[in-house]
Amino acid sequence: MSTAGIERGHCALLFPGQGSQYVGMGKDLYNTFPKSAKLAFDEADEAFNNGLLKLIFDGQQDKLKLTENAQPAILATSIAILRVLEDEFGFDVAKACTYTLGHSLGEYTALVATKSLTLHDAIKLVRLRGEAMTRSVADKGVSTSMSALVVRGDHLVQLEDAMDEIRASLPEGELVELANINSSFQVVISGTSKGVDHASRVLQSKKFAARAVDVPVSAPFHTSMMKEAADVMAEAFKNVQFREPVVDIVSNVTAKPYDNVSEIPLLLVQQTTATVEWQRSIKYCKDHDISDFLCFGPGKVLANLLKKEYPLDHIRSITSADDIKSQATDFRTIIAAASGTEPVRG
């Protein structure tokens, strides 16, 4: 997608996916920044048909982690953080960043951040997405699971090849697929419980994976079992207007920026069933000389992955009002560099 003629800062802006949610996230932002964070949260709550703020700030963790609640909650919190920087510090995504990207759900947040999608539409879409994902397997009478694997050494490519063989060898009715490739040392597999368990044992026996940790989710995300949810999203996108992003967004599916606006809904549909190519998305940024990453949103999962993979890079995680205050000088420097002016001190 063309960004010719725009002078940009040389960094990437990252947004987290499901699993980063926790009760109370963003409440300090809501109370501290009434002209920015509060407005963003209130807009998200209205799009949710009310009740989202109560879930986020004072709800039960078991209810918040439900996919249809967690996804809009994380998106709202991530955008609230961004709005604070935009309104209070003059942060401009179009000038400050070269690329934006989000992990799974976070790709919708990136679309909001780059003015391609309204916050109102995004909240409705990810709530629908969460409901459809859960419903895709709810009545199928099959046990499903997801498991995170630690990849041994430099065996990521061998692990991917082995997964193809394992998948082909499973009996009818069983399934396992690569849901996320998060880094050179972490992947997530997803599918039927028996398929996931079998794949975990085979990959560990081949010494491609060191250990497996169950991921507590309601459905086998990013597999062909999510086809029904993909169909639901394809229908929903017919009534949504996407605009050209002000900054290139790196797609989870292709691990490169969208080519044009019409490609956005098509790739979002594919994203529902396809592997999240996060490691290759980050590598795309690295191949284009990015070594400065801003991680906006609850939790520090994305920042921690990056710090382990690229320990010499400049990686900042912004999750709270305290993070914003403590890194205020950094933000002023970024803004000044993007605008060609001296940073304001103090």
Results as ranks from 00 to 15, higher is better:
K115H: 11
S193R: 11
K54R: 14
A73L: 10
D92A: 09
S116Y: 08
A110F: 07
D62S: 14
K307E: 14
S190L: 03
I282Y: 07
A328D: 13
E177D: 08
L64V: 01
S291N: 13
M1W: 05
N182A: 11
V213K: 12
K194I: 04
L267P: 11
G346M: 07
D289E: 13
Q60D: 14
D42E: 15
L13C: 05
P220L: 09
I318W: 07
Q241Y: 07
P72K: 03
S326W: 02
E172S: 14
V232P: 02
K38E: 08
D42Q: 06
I166H: 03
N260V: 07
T3C: 00
R167M: 15
Y108K: 02
Y284T: 01
D139N: 15
Q186N: 09
A336R: 04
D289H: 10
I335Q: 11
T329S: 15
R280F: 05
V261K: 06
D259L: 08
V217L: 04
I189V: 11
L125F: 02
K256H: 11
R243L: 12
G24C: 12
K308T: 08
P72A: 03
T254L: 12
L159N: 05
L302K: 08
D248Q: 14
T329V: 10
G191R: 09
K115Y: 09
A321Q: 07
R135S: 14
D322G: 04
F221A: 12
L117G: 03
G5K: 10
A148W: 09
L203P: 05
T67D: 01
T144F: 14
L128K: 15
L312I: 06
G106P: 07
G191H: 11
R83I: 02
R152K: 15
I189A: 10
T67L: 03
L52N: 00
A113S: 13
S251V: 10
A162G: 13
A138E: 13
N260P: 04
N49W: 04
T319Q: 15
I318H: 01
L13D: 01
K207Y: 02
V93P: 01
A321I: 06
K115L: 07
V196D: 05
K283C: 03
G26S: 13
K65T: 15
P34G: 11
V151F: 04
A76V: 05
K95F: 02
A122R: 01
L306K: 09
A148I: 06
L13K: 02
D154N: 14
R316C: 02
A255D: 07
D259P: 00
V176Q: 02
